[in-house]
Design a binder for these strands. Structure first.
Lengths: 249, 249
DNA sequence: CAGGTTTCTGCGTTTTTTTGCAGGAATACC
DNA sequence: GGTATTCCTGCAAAAAAACGCAGAAACCTG
């Protein structure tokens, strides 16, 4: 088994179960405990997981508070949310993924807006529920505890049955060459289904994530209709996306 | 169980109940009292909790609040939850409704329990998600904002597809003559489906709601397998239910 | 393709962390 | 004031991590 492969497997396990034990990993993959430990070390240095005595935990595990960076990018996300809202019209069916950017969007929705929002993300759904006028549809299935969204074939099947007007996609990484990429296999499956179902796909991303790559591919640039960042559309960082025919806001 | 995990669990318990006893924690997590004490020590040094003789308190507790009105029935509900948990075995598929009694059940689940919980209630699902070992399946559909559960034909169809071992039903009203009744038409539809699907239906109800009636009928007594209240099973108030062949706990 | 270099992996040893236990001190409760 | 918890200290065993090293594999590179 290749090192890269091994680490991808470990990362997948961590994202799936929120924790891994070095001991169980080394019997699963059949390598020495030292190798596992070194892998965990590397993944931890890359910020992908949290290494603890005896194994590792997913980041979301104790991601209760990240006050400093949170506030910092909060303003950027608010700006993105504003731009995104300008694309919404009354009566629309809107499918959204999870993530903090979408959370900000949910919080920022104008109270008089009347629309139907569909999502499988629990935190996002909670935000939508506070809104006085929108209808909320929840996609059901098994809940992935670390990403706090519903994942699985049922969820995907349900998404394929609907045809929303808009799809807002929070992104983990977007790159001119590799398109949108992510690090959780199940989340990627969902996003793929969301993109396929929707009439129009709008990708929300803070500038920090532009030109970054994650291990698993979600879709190419051609599948995206619009890209919203906190930057000015004329910013040179965005030129490649404009050139690719994406409407950049 | 990893140290971080344990501490996260403790922290969650503290934030939930505003206090924890070292003695009860050490039986719950199954470690020595010293370990718990050291964990509390560390968490206290990090400022996450306030350590006191015999356990720890939440920060918010210290400020003003002496337990408000809820506590009275909270204790009753906790007792009900305890009894309910005695009916759960590892590996079971368990369908639950919403409501505060079920919330208490969700909060009280022992951390080492491994089971699959299915529900359409958002607050209950949030509780389940905090649990380290259980699988959580969310029933999706349109969200009813006032009852905070998913309602509609999709949800009902999904419930009919499953065959859980147990169904815990929070009740609004139960009466010897009219059986279980409720006041929300959509919730009633769901509960009916839940009862129909489940191998065993366990009804949770505080004594206050016994012999009360609501406008819409959910089911008759014959559909219930077990009734759990905070009262002693021998209590005269429960006699009619025992006579009706219901196992009263 | 041959030779050299870098990277990766497993093993033995040492060091650190974690955990439980025992006995005495401190504290709460009656 | 006496008794029963609870707490702290030191200690020891077990588990895990870190470290150094050497063989093996992969990877340049000319």
């Amino acid at each position: 088994m290749l090192k890269k492969e091994r680490q991808a497997y470990i990362l997948h396990q961590v994202n799936l179960h929120n924790k891994v034990l070095s001991s169980s990993l080394c019997t699963e993959i059949n390598v020495s405990e030292d190798t596992i430990r070194r892998d965990l070390q590397e993944l931890s240095e890359e910020g992908k997981i949290i290494k603890v005595h005896g194994g590792a935990l997913s980041h979301s595990f104790n991601e209760v508070s990240f006050p400093i960076s949170g506030v910092y990018s909060q303003n950027q996300k608010r700006l993105i949310a504003q731009k995104a809202i300008s694309q919404i019209q009354n009566g629309m069916f809107i499918l959204t993924s999870g993530g903090t950017t979408i959370m900000e969007l949910a919080r920022t929705l104008p109270p008089q807006l009347k629309a139907t929002f569909i999502s499988g993300s629990i935190p996002v759904i909670l935000e939508y529920m506070h809104h006085p006028n929108i209808e909320v549809i929840l996609i059901g299935d098994k809940i992935s505890k670390n990403s706090k969204i519903t994942v699985g074939s049922e969820a995907i099947a349900k998404i394929k049955q609907i045809k929303p007007d808009l799809c807002f996609l929070g992104t983990n990484a977007i790159d001119a060459e590799h398109g949108i990429t992510d690090n959780d296999w199940e989340v990627v499956q969902l996003k793929k289904a969301m993109i396929e179902s929707s009439k129009k796909v709008i990708c929300l991303s803070i500038a920090e994530k532009i030109n970054t790559v994650q291990p698993i591919r979600v879709c190419g640039l051609s599948d995206i209709d619009m890209l919203i960042t906190e930057l000015d559309p004329g910013n040179p960082l965005l030129k490649t996306f404009v050139d690719a025919g994406i409407h950049v806001l």
